[in-house]
Each structure stands twice: as structure tokens, then as C-alpha cells.
């Protein structure tokens, strides 16, 4: 066991965890934020994408201790039920989800994508979301959502 200290959505989280604890398990089990999902657990699907110091990562392929001292942002940290993040609003308005399981990861990847490229083309969005898999939508509405989200975010 080891002490790990990091910020999750602005709040300091100081816990004793097994040194082999994955960041995604730390977020879900220790901190209790279950918006970050585990889809494949093999670094393929992207349902577990969170931001670590502003950079998108797959939380199932990083140890909690590697995030020591970092600022982690999860889907719970970008908006609230009352006031959604513009990217969440765009997914809602454009039917960018069906079952919703992949959505937290899609939204977190999309926000990073738009932070690097204010008005991405369709091809750039499809390329940028390569690490996120959706088994319902066929991606068309996700791409539309990200385009609309980029506009809302001021692109």
C-alpha cells in the first residue's frame, strides 16, 4: 500500500491504495465517481478517458500512482446536470448517443480535440476520436455533435 495524493475535479484526494491500483479504479472505487466507465479494459475503447493535467488519457492504462500530484478531470468535473458543458449540450441536441456507455470518454476526448483545434473538419474529428469506440450510433451523430460542440465552445 502507498499514499497517493492528487486532485480530482479540483478537490484534493489523499488515499492509501495498493500500488497496482489503476487510475480508473481509483476514480470509480476510491473517489466514488462512476461517470468514468470501463468498457474493454484493454486500452482500446476509450470509455475511461479522463484528463490528467489537461491531457486526455485512458485511465485503465495508467496507475493511480503515476498521477500523483496531478490534476485529474473526469466527466463529473466539466459540467453539472443543471448546467451542462457545451460539448455535453451538443451531444444531447444532436443525438450523439444511444446507450450512453461510451459518451463520457467521447466527450472528454472531444473537449481535448477542440482545445487543440478550434474548428475541426469531419476528417479531423473522425481521426481525433480514433481511440473511442461506440457500438450504437455508427458515429455520424457523434461527429455532428463534436462539430456543434466546437462551435458552442467558440470555434
Amino acid at each position: 500500500m502507498a499514499e497517493v495524493s492528487l486532485k480530482v475535479n479540483g478537490k484534493v484526494e489523499n488515499h492509501e491504495v495498493g500500488e497496482n491500483t489503476l487510475l480508473v479504479d481509483f476514480i470509480r472505487e476510491t473517489v466514488g465517481l462512476t461517470g468514468t466507465h470501463v468498457g474493454c479494459d484493454t486500452s482500446q475503447c476509450g470509455a475511461c478517458v479522463v484528463h490528467v493535467d489537461g491531457v486526455s488519457v485512458k485511465a485503465c492504462t495508467m496507475l493511480a500512482m503515476q498521477a500523483e500530484g496531478s490534476e485529474v478531470t473526469t466527466i463529473e468535473g466539466i459540467g453539472s446536470s443543471e448546467k451542462l458543458h457545451p460539448m455535453q449540450e451538443a451531444f444531447h441536441e444532436n443525438h450523439g448517443l444511444q446507450c450512453g456507455f461510451c459518451t463520457p470518454g467521447m466527450v472528454m476526448s472531444a473537449i481535448e480535440l477542440v482545445s487543440k483545434n478550434k474548428s475541426p473538419s469531419e476528417a479531423e474529428i473522425r481521426d481525433g476520436l480514433e481511440g473511442n469506440i461506440c457500438r450504437c450510433t455508427g458515429y455520424h451523430n457523434i461527429v455532428k455533435s463534436v462539430q456543434a460542440g466546437a462551435e458552442k465552445m467558440g470555434g
Binding site: G46, S56, V57, K58, T61, M62, S109, G131
Partner: peptide, 9 residues
Amino acid sequence: IGDRQVRNR
């Protein structure tokens, strides 16, 4: 290489 998240790590 890989995808965006793999390239970030």
C-alpha cells in the same frame, strides 16, 4: 502511432 490517448502517454 496508436490513437490520441496512446500518443499522450
